[in-house]
Amino acid sequence: MDTKLQIIDISIPLFQQKGYKGVGVTEIIKACNVSKGSFYHHFPDGKEELLMACLKSIDETITTHMKDIFKQYPSTQEATLAMIDILISDFEKKSRIVVSTFTSIVSEIGSLSEPVRNSCSDLYQKMQKIYCTKLEADGFSKETANSIALMMIASIEGAIMLCLTHKSSQPLKVISHELKKVLNYPG
């Protein structure tokens, strides 16, 4: 594996578990088994540049995963419930949510730079667009689809944080149940 990709792949779970501030360059170098020179060769601007690369990787993983799920199901309701079932299964098997643990990094957003904030914002906009497209195909107006999509992101991301803090998949199960009501076909 390419050293840069190795550093990114190893750093993502470190950032997800400990947050941006909780992980130092020394810990990253040690976990990746690379020299300081090698780290700075690939990330000359240091930890923030690495974080941006990690966010890009997470962005690609999440959007690809969501698009794949949403292509498999005819309605937003079925696709969303399938996605939440995957999150629940992930949590119950691993006590963490692998695919969508973007939230843990975003929680520090207030103290991070504008490029990092923009990167996070871009991912949420992509997620909202995936939801909106499917909701509009289900017959919801553009305005209603945007509102529901925003509510879905906030609900699911909030439930992920609650699962992690409560060490229980129950918050995602509750959201799944409640979204069934919201995602009924319009009219």
Rank of each mutant, 00 (worst) to 15 (best):
A53S: 15
I62Q: 02
T80V: 15
L55I: 15
H65I: 00
I97R: 00
P74E: 13
M83H: 13
L55W: 08
M83A: 13
K93W: 02
I88M: 08
S89W: 00
P74M: 12
I58G: 03
L55A: 07
T63F: 11
D85N: 11
M66G: 02
T76S: 14
K71P: 00
S95C: 11
D85C: 02
E78I: 10
S57A: 07
S57T: 08
M66I: 06
A79I: 07
S95R: 15
S89P: 07
T76I: 12
D59R: 13
I69F: 03
T63A: 06
Q72M: 07
F91N: 06
D59V: 05
K93C: 02
K71T: 03
D90M: 04
Q77C: 05
V98S: 13
K71D: 04
F70R: 02
K67F: 07
I62K: 05
E92D: 14
A82I: 07
P74D: 15
S57W: 03
T64W: 06
A82G: 09
A53L: 11
P74F: 15
D68W: 10
K67Q: 11
D68R: 12
D59T: 10
M52A: 14
K56E: 14
I58S: 01
S57H: 05
V99P: 12
S57Q: 06
K94P: 08
F70M: 08
K71F: 05
I69D: 04
E92A: 02
D59K: 06
A82M: 07
S75K: 14
Y73T: 08
D90Q: 10
S95V: 08
A82E: 10
A82H: 11
K71L: 06
Q77I: 04
M66P: 08
